[in-house]
Design a protein around this nucleic acid. Structure first.
Length: 419
RNA sequence: GGAGAGAUGGGUGAGUGGCUUAAACCACAGGUUUGCUAAACCUGCGAAGGAAGUAAUUCCUUCCGAGGGUUCGAAUCCCUCUCUCUCCGCCA
């Protein structure tokens, strides 16, 4: 959500910022509604003040047993005016909110301008593509050949975009999650949480999934939604809170399943377990003071990268361009892991600085020198577990169809290969 | 699911229709004094918004879980909902 003050004072900059994110110029409409709202408010408040004074007089007169009919009649008159102004104020408020709640965050000045993912820019790379003296397979061939990944049974249970993992591969998933959580809590300074997987509307409005992206979510009953990412519960921990400055920064992590309807991705990545309705992920969330959020994004990126470095898997980091960024972000880095079977890089983590965009929606503030200041929020995958599993299968595959286990996972896995 | 109790500022907590303009304490911030891993005292201190002013600031409105209602006037009375706690039942 945007500050109305900012829009009022910088209408042209605001419209330009929205334009690069694919929105129409709305500042003049916003300012007009806001103006009517404030004028209404001013008149209304004067009438309310008048009513309050009269009511007080009535109280005094009555306590002295004197007649107060004049005052009572006057207040009766005021009442109808007050009610219609209240209604108008409400309407304008709702108009304003429904516009503001649907506008994406403003991109940071360091974000490259661009239309779609083809215009993302390379930020850095780590490692090199591994060489195989055989034709590397894709993850689902490896897994199906081993009899440990099964899509048909999963689809019998739940339909398309689900997967069933078995024995060593399901254990591998668990090992990966444990490794990531241990790394982030022991080395990277994050606090582990076990969070609810169902959340209510307010939480999803806070982080920006609602109202605009309802179709991407799975509803659960009348009042709940399945979380699309642990970002939602972890970030909303500070919703409606005024934090003490010495509580910051807050760095939290959680391992959860994530549920996504993938409504806009029909026909995309249908083969394999790359794009599922349900997958697991270790999420990182930071709540920081505004002046530290840019550094925090770099720090978070390094934390996410540390997982792939420990696993010794080649990756590159892309800076997303304005056209490819998510709704709530002001800047996003994607970590793209190398998948030799697919012969391509695929997103395995997305680290975003949301600035005060989510904090305004959530009303999350901290107290500094007696002032209440909106926090800045950041979130990133650290990492997507399912996709890490894919990356391990493809990067650690051997010619005989077996898969070696990365060194750092052996202690969680107690085995050197899948078989 | 049944019965009961409750929800007040960052926290604890008083307040049953107009002397509440939300007390008091804690925490926090500033200061004074003593002097050293600190204490005592003083002062300030809920939130959101509007109007006036170059500004410091001043005035006003709203908010006591949420939404409605009664009333000239509601933290206080009524209705609906949400959540928390206690007991009972069921249950991983």
């Amino acid at each position: 959500m945007h500050s109305i003050n900012y829009i009022r004072e910088n209408p042209i900059e605001f419209d330009n910022a929205m334009k690069v994110r694919g929105e129409k110029p709305l500042s003049s409409k916003i300012i007009e509604i806001d103006k009517i709202k404030r004028e209404t408010q001013t008149v209304l408040q004067n009438l309310l003040a008048e009513r309050n004074t009269l009511s007080k007089e009535i109280g005094i007169l009555k306590s002295k047993n004197q007649n107060a009919n004049d005052q009572i009649n006057k207040v009766e008159d005021l009442k109808t005016k007050i009610n219609s102004l209240k209604e108008l104020e409400n309407i304008k408020n709702n108009e304003l909110n429904s516009i503001l709640m649907n506008l994406p965050n403003i991109a940071h000045k360091s974000v490259p301008n661009g239309k779609d993912e083809s215009e993302n820019t390379l930020y850095r790379k780590w490692g090199t593509k591994p060489k195989f003296n055989f034709q590397p397979k894709v993850h689902y061939e490896i897994g199906e050949k081993l009899g440990l990944i099964n899509f048909e049974i999963a689809s019998k249970l739940s339909g398309s975009r689900f997967v069933l993992l078995k024995k060593q591969i399901s254990k591998l998933e668990r090992s990966i999650a444990n490794f990531m959580l241990d790394k982030h809590t022991e080395d990277n300074g994050y606090t582990e949480y076990s969070v609810p997987f169902l959340v209510k509307d307010d939480s999803l409005y806070g982080t920006g999934q609602l109202p605009k992206f309802e179709e991407d979510l799975f509803p659960a009953g009348d009042h709940h939604w399945l979380i699309p990412t642990a970002e939602v519960p972890l970030t909303n921990l500070v919703r409606n809170e005024i934090l003490n400055i010495n509580q910051l920064p807050i760095r939290s992590t959680s391992y959860t399943p994530c549920f996504r309807s993938e409504a806009g991705a029909a026909g995309k990545d249908t083969r394999g377990m790359l794009r599922q309705h349900q997958f697991t992920k270790v999420e990182l969330v930071s709540i920081v003071e505004p002046q530290f959020s840019e550094d925090e994004l770099e720090r978070m990126l390094v934390c996410a990268e540390s997982i792939l470095k420990d696993l010794n898997i080649h990756y590159r980091v892309m800076t997303l361009c304005t056209g490819d960024m998510g709704f709530s972000a002001n800047k996003t880095y994607d970590i793209e892991v190398w998948l030799p079977g697919e012969n391509t890089y695929r997103e395995i983590s997305s680290c975003s600085n949301c600035g005060d965009f989510q904090a305004r929606r959530m009303n999350s503030r901290y107290k500094s020198n007696d002032k209440n200041i909106f926090t800045h929020t950041l979130n990133g995958s650290g990492l997507a577990v399912g996709r890490t599993l894919i990356a391990i299968l493809e990067n650690y595959q051997m010619e005989d169809g077996n898969v070696e286990i990365p060194k750092v996972l052996i202690k969680y896995f107690n085995n050197k290969t899948l078989f």
